[in-house]
Design a protein around this nucleic acid. Structure first.
Lengths: 172, 172
DNA sequence: CTCGGTGCAAAGCTTTTGCATCCGC
DNA sequence: GCGGATGCAAAAGCTTTGCACCGAG
C-alpha cells in the first residue's frame, strides 16, 4: 500500500509536534514512541489498544503492551491522539491532528461508529463553561442510534450509505 | 434518615414501572430486584457497581455482585436507571425517573460531576438523526473542564458554588 | 555513566460465566 | 414441580505495576 504524499506530510508534522512535546516535558525520544505514532497515522480509523499492539506486531516492530499504553498516554496528553469510551469498557482512540472537531454516532445494532460535525456542540461548551465558571478543555458527544425502519433490514448497508452524508458533513 | 413523602411517592412509582417492565418481559419479580431498585432511589447521587453492592451490604440486605449487575441491566433497559462512562473504566449509574434530561460536566481536577441542561443538545440529536437516517435512542454529552484561575485554589469549594448554578439550571 | 524507558510477567480491577441451589410462578 | 434467578467462585478482559535490563542523553 503506497503512502500518498499527504500522509507522508502529516506524519512529518505530527512527528515534529511530538518531538517538541517530548522535549518540553523532558521525556526521551525513543524509537518505540515514534514507531507507534507512525503506525497510528498510517490508518485513519479508530482503534483500541490491542488492535494497535497487533498492528505493530504485523509490522514486525515489536513493542510491549506496557509501552503501547505508556505511549498512548503521552500522545493523548500531547493532543495528537483522542481517547474515547463508546460505552464498552475498552478505550478507543483516533488521530487528532488535522481533523476538524467532530463527534460520534454509534449504531447500536452493528456498533459502527460514524462521525459528524455540528457547531452547536462548541456553542454549548462555551455557554456552560461561562455559566459554571469552568474552562472546558474537551468534550465528548455520543449519539446512540438505530437505523430507521426502512433501512433496518441491512444495517451495514445503511452504514455505507451514511458514509456519504458523513463525508460531506466531515469535509463541509 | 427520614424519608420525606416525595421520595416515598417516587419509590412507589418506579416500583410500579419496574413491575410492568418485568411482567411485559416475562421476568421474575424477585425481592432482590426490588431491594436494589429501592436502594438506588434512596440516594440521588451517582454511583458505581461496587458502591451499590456495599450500600446493599450496609443495609443488611445481601445480594451478590452478579445480581447487582443483572438487575442494573434490567433497570437500564427499563429506562429507570441511566448508565454513564466518565472516562474511567468503571461504569457509573444514576436515577433516570423524574429527572429532566441533563448532561454532565466533569471537573478534571477533583473528578466531581455536575449536571446541566441545554436544549440545544436535543436539537443536535434530532438534526443528526434526520440527516443520517437514524433514530437516536439516547446520547451522552460530557464536558471535561477545570475551574477558572480565580477558583483554582479550591476546587471543591468552586464545586460547591457551582451547585447553585446547577440547581437553578436543573430546576429551571 | 545515569536514569528513565522498555519488556515481560504478575497482579489488580471490573465484569462475565458456570454451576449448584433456591424460589417465583 | 419447572425453569429462571441467585450466590459463589472461578475465569476472562483490560490496564497497571514491579523489576531487571537496555539505551537515550
Amino acid at each position: 500500500m503506497k503512502q500518498d504524499s499527504r500522509v507522508v506530510k502529516v506524519k512529518e508534522e505530527v512527528r515534529e509536534i511530538f518531538t517538541a512535546y517530548l522535549e518540553k516535558n523532558k521525556q526521551r525520544k525513543t524509537p518505540e514512541r515514534y514507531a507507534i505514532l507512525d503506525e497510528i497515522y498510517s490508518h485513519k480509523d479508530h482503534f483500541d489498544v490491542d488492535a494497535l499492539y497487533i498492528k505493530m506486531k504485523n509490522r514486525n516492530y515489536h513493542v510491549s503492551r506496557a509501552t503501547v499504553y505508556n505511549t498512548l498516554d503521552l500522545l493523548v496528553d500531547s493532543g495528537l491522539v483522542k481517547k474515547h469510551q463508546f460505552g464498552e469498557n475498552t478505550s478507543h482512540f483516533e488521530q487528532a491532528y488535522g481533523y476538524k472537531q467532530h463527534d460520534h454516532l454509534i449504531c447500536v445494532k452493528c456498533k459502527k461508529v460514524l462521525e459528524f460535525c455540528d457547531p452547536r456542540v462548541q456553542q454549548i461548551s462555551t455557554t456552560m463553561g461561562q455559566l459554571l465558571h469552568f474552562s472546558v478543555t474537551h468534550h465528548s458527544l455520543h449519539l446512540y442510534a438505530q437505523p430507521h425502519a426502512d433501512d433496518a433490514g441491512n444495517c451495514h448497508n445503511c452504514g455505507n450509505n451514511l458514509e456519504q452524508y458523513l463525508t460531506e458533513q466531515h469535509n463541509g
